[in-house]
Design a protein around this nucleic acid. Structure first.
Length: 880
DNA sequence: GGCTCTCGGGG
DNA sequence: GTGTACGAGAGCC
């Protein structure tokens, strides 16, 4: 029988463990596989000459333990095999106790591996992986699905996934006050579901905790307890593989479990008799529902480094990705819910609750959100639930498996991490000082998978690390650390990296020719998974909680990286008539006097293949062309990018570090920033850009700007008295609560504008509606000097326009003067050129930036602009 | 620039 | 469940 592993755990029967694998077959049936021939074990490394004694000592206290002397390889430092004790126990739950007891005899290894993972590692089974099982179906009341007693379990390689059942879940509560509800005090009044595929012909279902009048999509229950029992019935009946929701880990699941406890309802939400639980650690909760996977869309999106949102609430993400939003309530949540509940008019409640479930489900199913995580599971071996978590566990388990295959033993996780944090000292990547300013025709090249390539090329691993200058063939890194050559021993890390990089090349190739859309999707997801895994692997040795923490190795990798980029710059500038104007980690930005896309591309390719040929194991690639490029500082730039697409080019504006959208800015700022950048980059017309800014300033001063564009939104997160500083939105909340004593604004997001007046700034925050009704005026000075100018000034400054020039030197005067006495900018010299120097024609005085007038500030003669590059000649840009 | 502090999502 | 895990952005020198 062929099955795909969804989840795993174990139970203890007669003091012996039985591993359970919750699986799906290709038809979507749930089958739980039992395996009872595997026992927990770990290693002890102590004084090898005293092992016989040690065994006796341990057996005195634990007579039934099987203890063998075996040969294994140590995880850190290249060295010959050592003898260790392999201690095999019976009940995994008692391993910690055993571990503590034997610690006095030496160092323990692998004594903190979860039993299900010990089993999966040794049998080479993977989360979301397929297996072939032999055995027979059996009867049991410990699981709610079909049960199968396995004699043999073997891994299989199958690309496709079994059809899964997805359920989104969302609860609504009735808080007694204006605050986020707590399960100890507040009840659940509604539970909504969305299903994929449909459940009994329904895509959604809402349960209500009172016998109110309802519509077709809902079921009215006589109490909260009856509703939650009904909810369990539906979960068991639908039997979802995936339960998803937005912030379901941080809210719904823990809330639900606590309510079940309070109402004395068993918490068996999973596929077995085991109770679901959700453990809190620091900020986040870890859910565990046996046989199922809990997917929190909030956590997934927040953790995704490739897609950024302004906010991570369900409404924002759904709007961006699905073009759909949450239903907006007319009043505050508490007031609305209490009113609906009191009047038993729950139709709106049903709609509201249903929408949340529908959105969460759509984000997961319609956006194929889990594809990448399925592949991460299949590659590193973690169960899907754990693959949704952080990077470190992924590498940890993959490396455990690879260590096991090669007879290396893995250290336990560090118990205390503070000493590591104290003297951490990991030096990062190299970022060259950029040539600040405006440039044209910039070619961008970057190393594909630089860190993984360096690991592979130099055999960097804890297992190849030479701790003392042993007499074996080795390389010495720029950091000074030594690693044995692959001919002596090929490291585990390089092997894993090699597997990832090769797989990626293959997967990309396959994806191109694959015609089946599902397979194509999976291959694309696999490519992303491999990219994430290979790029983050290097960080594992420098991660303070790592089992393989060796800062020297992490430092070696970044040192290699810094050397590589420095050498690349040198190679390029010594062999080509170009200048490297910026470089960051694994990319270089090159300026030449080439002036077309095709020529730039040709040059880029020529340079990159030259560099690649000089650096073995590394591949520098032509990436893109910036037709125009504005760089303010390290990691802060914007450019008009052209990328090759087939026979043509695609273009877009790319921004790094220059934020045009920020939560605490009003939309006027974001809009203006974007418009100005577009003018500068696409039209190169700084005059037009500054005129544009002055026009906005003018509109502001005349009060022509719509209030919506000036509204700044901030959340009132805590009780008003709990704030000690004076903040505009908090002051406004106070005022508004004064005006309407019934209102509480705690927990709400408050929009405000700053109005004219001579009070303290924060006291002048006002409700936009109140401003409209009472004909108040906004304070243009505030918007110009506090909102608009700060982000714009730097952009203009690097283009050679000082803040005072931007507003025609009237910054000191009142805004009215700007309007009345607006001078014209000089007609020419306002089109941006990329230059390195402005030199006076008359007195030869040179300036890093030209003045806006185009005349020398010293002697008023016209300036000329020159570009001095590494090419050793000066190009005259003023050939009129 | 580097460091510490805050707050997020949910109802 | 052989467990024990934040991280980006803002504010401050």
């Amino acid at each position: 029988m062929e099955l795909q592993i969804i989840d795993s755990d174990y139970i203890v029967l007669n003091n012996k463990p039985i591993v359970r694998l919750f699986c799906k077959n290709i038809n979507g049936e749930t089958i739980c596989v039992f395996y009872d021939k595997f026992l927990p074990y770990f290693y002890l490394h102590g004084d090898e000459t005293k092992y016989e004694e040690t065994i006796k000592e341990i057996n005195k206290k634990y007579p039934n333990l099987k203890i063998e002397i075996v040969e294994r390889l140590m995880p850190i430092g290249f060295q010959p095999p050592v003898k260790v004790l392999k201690i095999t126990g019976d009940n995994p739950a008692r391993t910690p106790e055993l571990r503590e007891f034997v610690k006095v005899f030496g160092t323990v290894y692998e004594a903190d591996i979860l039993f299900k993972y010990r089993f999966m590692s040794d049998f080479d089974l993977k989360g979301m992986g397929w297996i072939n099982v032999e055995g027979k179906f059996t009867k049991t009341n410990t699981v709610k699905c079909k049960a199968f007693d396995a004699e043999e379990i073997k891994p299989l390689e199958i690309l496709k996934n079994a059809p899964l059942r997805y359920m989104a879940l969302d609860i609504e509560c009735l808080p007694a006050e204006q605050r986020i509800p707590t399960p100890e005090k507040d009840m659940i009044i509604a539970v909504s579901f969305a299903f994929s595929p449909a459940y009994k012909g329904k895509d959604t279902l809402v349960l209500i905790a009172q016998l109110a009048r309802i519509n077709n999509d809902a079921i009215a229950c006589e109490s909260e307890k009856a509703m939650l029992e009904k909810m369990k019935e539906i979960i068991d009946d639908y039997d979802p593989d995936i339960i998803c929701g937005h912030n379901i880990n941080g809210f719904d699941i823990p809330f639900l479990l606590k309510r079940l406890e309070i109402l004395s309802i068993p918490q068996d939400l999973g596929r077995s008799e085991k109770f679901a639980f959700s453990r809190k650690l620091q900020r986040s909760y870890m859910p565990s529902v046996s046989g199922r996977v809990i997917v929190d869309t909030f956590e997934i999106f927040k953790r995704d480094p490739w897609v950024k949102f302004k906010r991570y609430d369900l409404s924002t993400i759904s709007r961006e990705l699905l073009g759909m939003e949450k239903i907006e309530l007319k009043g505050s949540y508490v007031d609305t819910m209490r009113e609906m509940w009191r009047t038993k008019n729950v139709i709106d409640l049903i709609e509201y609750s249903k929408r949340d479930a529908v959105l969460a489900l759509k984000l997961v199913v319609d956006k194929s959100l889990l594809d990448k995580f399925f592949e991460i599971s299949k590659i590193c071996g973690l169960l899907l639930q754990d693959a949704l978590g952080g990077q470190s566990q992924r590498h940890e388990f993959k490396l455990l498996k690879e260590f096991y295959k090669r007879k290396f033993i893995m250290p336990c996780k560090p118990t205390s991490v503070s000493d590591r944090i104290k003297k951490h000292g990991l030096k990062g990547a190299l970022v060259l000082e950029p040539q600040v300013g405006f440039h044209e025709w910039v070619v961008c090249l970057d190393f594909t998978s630089m860190y993984p390539s360096l690991i592979r090329a130099n055999n960097i691993c804890t297992t190849t690390f030479l701790t003392n200058g042993e007499n074996v063939d080795h390389i010495v890194s720029p950091y000074g650390s030594k690693f044995v050559k692959p001919s002596v021993f090929k490291g585990v890390l390089p092997d894993v990296v090699d597997e990832y990089l090769n797989a990626r090349v293959l997967v990309k190739k396959q994806a191109k020719i694959e015609t089946d859309p599902e397979n194509k999707r999976i291959l694309k997801a696999k490519n992303l998974a491999l990219k994430d895994l290979s790029n983050s692997l290097y960080g594992y040795t420098g991660y303070v909680r790592s089992r393989l923490y060796v800062v020297d190795i992490a430092n070696t990798i970044t040192a290699f990286g810094r050397d590589t980029i420095t050498y690349t710059k040198k190679l390029i500038e010594e062999n080509f008539p170009v200048k490297v104007i910026y470089a960051d980690t694994d990319s270089v930005f090159i300026k030449s006097d080439v002036k077309s896309l095709e020529e730039s591309e040709k040059l880029g390719i020529e340079i990159s293949s030259f560099v690649s040929s000089k650096l073995t194991g590394l591949d520098l690639k032509f990436e893109k062309i910036f037709k125009t490029f504005l760089i303010e500082a390290k990691k802060r730039y914007a450019g008009w990018v052209f990328e090759r697409e087939g026979t043509g080019w695609t273009d877009r504006i790319e921004m790094k570090g220059i934020e045009t959208v920020r939560r605490d800015w009003c939309s006027l700022v974001s809009d203006t920033m974007l418009d100005v950048l577009n003018i500068i980059l696409k039209e190169k017309d700084i005059n037009k850009a500054s005129k544009y800014v002055r026009q906005i300033v003018g509109d502001l001063a005349k009060g022509k700007m719509p209030l919506e564009k000036l509204t700044i939104v901030k959340g009132v997160t805590k009780a008003i008295d709990a704030y000690d500083g004076v903040q505009p939105h908090v002051e406004l909340a106070k005022k508004m609560m004064q005006r309407d004593k019934t209102k509480s604004l705690v927990g709400e997001r408050l929009g405000y504008v700053i109005v004219k007046g001579n009070q303290l700034l924060s006291k002048r925050a006002e409700d936009p509606d109140f401003v409209k009704q009472n004909g108040l005026e906004v304070d243009p000075e505030y918007y110009v000097y506090n909102q608009l100018l700060p982000p714009l000034e730097r952009m203009f400054e690097v283009c050679g326009i000082t803040p005072s020039e931007l507003l025609e030197g009237v910054k000191q005067k009142s805004l009215l003067d700007i309007l009345n006495g607006q001078k014209q900018l000089p007609p020419d010299k306002t089109v941006l050129k990329s230059f390195e120097l402005a030199v006076c024609n008359n007195c030869n005085w040179s300036f890093r930036r030209p003045s806006l007038t185009g005349n020398c500030p010293k002697c008023s003669s016209p300036l000329y602009f020159s570009a001095a590059g590494s090419i050793g000649r000066t190009v005259d840009f003023n050939k009129k």
